[in-house]
Design a protein around this nucleic acid. Structure first.
Lengths: 350, 350
DNA sequence: CGCCAACCGGAGAGCGCTCTCCAGGCGGGT
DNA sequence: ACCCGCCTGGAGAGCGCTCTCCGGTTGGCG
């Protein structure tokens, strides 16, 4: 059906299409890219020729001259030493927040014809290889999801002069765009909820404290509690997995058996905490109220369903994509940051 | 530090490196690609020049002539009509099996310097765009994770002449390589386990029946039960989410209150089933034994921990990557299939 | 009616790389 | 001592595309 005329075995090129249409390469190129005005009648002829030959532009050749690839990388980076017992990949992909992120990014990228390349950087070797790859001009820019404070990647990216956007405020000030949620504002909502319920002995399970987000949530929670007269808020550190949430809750119960409210820094850990509470014979929320963070699937699946803090992840991801595209279009534009406000989602656990 | 000598603002090219090293472009290229013998002393000089200039090969230029990109796509495809209420992305990324898959693939790809591009095809529009992208020669080959029977993608891929490997036997015979697990053998293991425990009233919760894997598991289970004298095995269809597992279990309990054993086609649904059983006041495994499928994190997290069928996902994924690379190296090689044997993992639920 | 401007299509020069072809040098065999 | 062949490095031709520059045509205005 297609692919007759010229081009014996090979894939058709601009040249072939031009010959079939009886015009020059340049004209075909102009029609395909919709650049400059081309006689509508000619356009029709060219389009027909494209159809007939089954022509598809060669991306490599195009990139070579335009210096654009029309694709961006989504890099997920994690510090090596934070890999406890479960494999990195299991963690990141298991966490529902990732899907929402991808979904938000795609929503912006797809209509613009930009494709997304997913890359993992789970240790230093991978990181080195990654930088090499990125420098080869494989992508136009990078969205970096980095979860630890001393990640060298943000610095490496700015050094390499690659347009990039971070998923959270970088640990050290850096000329780089980022999107973040007001973590402490979220923690404040959680604290206020627990106080409103009348909780008197409140504790918290935090995320890994080398992450700015974890620090902010912890600080925000403690501040708000302090402002309401609760000077001392016990806390145990987890690593965002259900298992560590369970362990942390166990520890809290042992050290402070009279606890009646807990703020857990993410839903997965909150799930573990609820399980631990149940095992210990405490009813949620009657005996102990639990507030999670993220509003992930886990929150809805839990029994009782989790009261939690929702970050507008899809919106945030979409904003990252938009910031990145803007920066690609104009590399000179100065780095921007956008902060989103979290909201309280009330369910049954608190 | 680097990037001095020549090349004022621009990124260094082969030409620059050659000039710095005092050799020809060809020689630098040979050293970089390790092709043909080059005088070791010259090699040293060239390497030093590369270092000094901070040279990184331009992938576009390279691809243009080699017709290779050194990257493969991991395409995750899903039929549009199967999107019930939860978003597609949430499902796929939430399922732990995905992480294991990626991990296995990366293990093979990374050492070979091949990068992985993740692409989603969640509806027909996306699929069309995807095919266009693939035809542009953006990747050398495709690993396709497709979950429904009437996916047009396998056919489109063979039509496009792109090297590809499927994650399961295609619904219709097609000249394409694939890797699969012996689904029915896994179901057989589950059946035998339930029988060995002395279960007499057995039911099953299947996956979506438009998936060959679901069909095979159901058929394998029924066959084995039949062979042991259980003529009738009630079944309810789920869609692999915890929620549908819960619903399905509820339905089974209502229709067959005397059930004492269930085979659930994946762990996530099994988790839901266990929850439903508990809510209904049945003890697992004392009153009802439950066998899952996949040996995902969910199986270990569940209480009680799930007895389940383990597919060697990492191995299977690695094999897919190997098959694909082989096919890319020699496009003439004929399609191969590799079937892996599942194993029974005994925990507490059965 | 003439001039200028605006507009549109074609020619051709690269983008940075690989790879074939060729020339020169050296060693070994007769 | 000569010749042949192998080994190594250089020259140069593209890979398929975009985009600048140019020339020709047309329309509007003086």
């Amino acid at each position: 059906m297609s692919k007759d005329r010229l081009a014996p075995g090979a894939t058709p090129t601009l040249e072939h299409v031009a010959k079939v249409a009886g015009v020059s390469r340049a004209t075909v190129s102009r029609v395909i890219n919709g650049i400059r005005n081309v006689d509508p009648q000619l356009q029709e002829i060219v389009r027909a020729a494209v159809e007939q030959t089954g022509y598809v532009p060669n991306q490599a050749a195009r990139s070579l001259v335009t210096r654009r690839t029309n694709s961006v990388a989504l890099v997920v980076s994690e510090a090596e030493h934070r890999t406890f017992d479960d494999p990195f990949l299991g963690r990141i992909f298991t966490d529902p927040f990732f899907g929402r992120l991808v979904s938000g990014i795609m929503g912006v990228l797809r209509p613009r014809g930009v494709t997304m390349v997913l890359m993992l950087a789970e240790n230093d070797a991978a990181r080195t290889q990654l930088i090499g790859y990125l420098k080869q001009g494989h992508v136009d820019g990078v969205i970096l999801i980095s979860s630890n404070v001393d990640d060298p990647l943000p610095g490496l990216l700015t050094d390499a002069g690659l347009p990039a956007v971070l998923s959270q405020r970088p640990a050290k000030p850096l000329p780089i765009s980022y999107v973040d949620a007001a973590q402490s504002a979220g923690a404040k909502l959680a604290a206020e909820r627990l106080i409103a319920r009348g909780c008197r002995r409140v504790a918290t399970i935090s995320g890994p404290l080398d992450m700015p987000a974890s620090q902010d949530r912890l600080a925000g929670f403690r501040d708000t509690m302090a402002r309401h007269g609760h000077a001392y808020v016990p806390s145990v550190e987890g690593n965002f997995t259900q298992e560590t949430g369970e362990r942390a809750m166990l520890q809290l119960l042992e050290e402070h058996p009279d606890i009646d409210g807990v703020f857990v820094a993410n839903d997965l850990m909150a799930l573990g905490a609820v399980l631990a509470l149940r095992d210990a014979g405490r009813r949620v929320p009657e005996d102990v109220a639990v507030v999670g963070f993220d509003d992930s699937n886990a929150a809805q699946m839990s029994r009782p369903p989790l009261t939690t803090i929702r970050q507008p992840l899809e919106d945030m991801a979409a904003q990252m994509a938009r910031l990145l595209l803007a920066r690609i279009d104009d590399p000179q534009s100065k780095p921007t940051s956008v902060i989103f406000e979290p909201t309280l989602v009330v369910r049954e656990s608190a």
